[in-house]
Design a protein around this nucleic acid. Sequence first.
DNA 1: CGGTAGAATTGTAATCATTACAAATTGGTT
DNA 2: AACCAATTTGTAATGATTACAATTCTACCG
Lengths: 143, 143
Amino acid sequence: MELTAPLRYLRAHGVKPSAQRLAVMHYLLEHRTHPSADEIYSALHPTMPTLSKTTVYNTLRLLTENGAAVQLTIDERNVCFDADTSPHAHFLCTRCGKVYDVPLANYDLERHALIPEGFRTEQAAIYYRGCCEHCASENVATC
Amino acid sequence: MELTAPLRYLRAHGVKPSAQRLAVMHYLLEHRTHPSADEIYSALHPTMPTLSKTTVYNTLRLLTENGAAVQLTIDERNVCFDADTSPHAHFLCTRCGKVYDVPLANYDLERHALIPEGFRTEQAAIYYRGCCEHCASENVATC
DNA sequence: CGGTAGAATTGTAATCATTACAAATTGGTT
DNA sequence: AACCAATTTGTAATGATTACAATTCTACCG
């Protein structure tokens, strides 16, 4: 039961499974916190001591290239990843650094912008920055 | 006449002018190519040999903090900057790396997403990735 | 079963953007 | 001219990501 979902996910996106790929996919599916490559590595390394950081980077690239995950460039420090590939926006709290999912009012992202003829869009992202509710109530001064 | 616009721009956003700040602001206003800090430094350094890269970074941070420019995280390699702070989207061509401006059909960015109560939005960005018209006609194979 | 080719993984070293920091310079004020 | 604060500079550090060559794994074939 434990690894069923990751395996299905990889197969559905044409990614050949391996212990490392299943572990990364599993982590992404279980932790919807938009982790960075380093966070994933640090979380998996204790229980999978042979895992290398390069493999985590390679796997994440493979997953995003095959549509099994999405990479977010909302945080200028490092890229982070999301196993939820359905259309939704993201909100980065610049105080605590958390990235929140935000549902879209209108699912047709491309219709928002007037992209010129001849341009082929492959990906769309909507990013918000600001102060999340938790930080706003914690620290009134800076919010 | 040459530096009038940059000076006005800095003053309008409460940034105390200096030769370096005017040069960076001037470059951003003249080059709507969404340059990175390094591109700006490389372009200005020949005619301003004492300019340091740290100053370019410091100045860009100052400009964005004061609303005289916007920083884009559309390119995962490096942050880039735009002197046009009016609401518009951006399109990154993953082939040639160019960032294009894209007008918005609906100027109210925040209304697109259902941001939860208590969250305070300070910035919104819409990013597209894909293949631009020029690259599409150049190289049919990869587009 | 054992051998083998190709793919996947690993670890280390390099790269590259960005930041930290302390020293030097500049600008405005008395 | 003298002084304080702000700005700039150069160098060194940091930190994420990638390059690369060596090792290990996997699937297939005899």
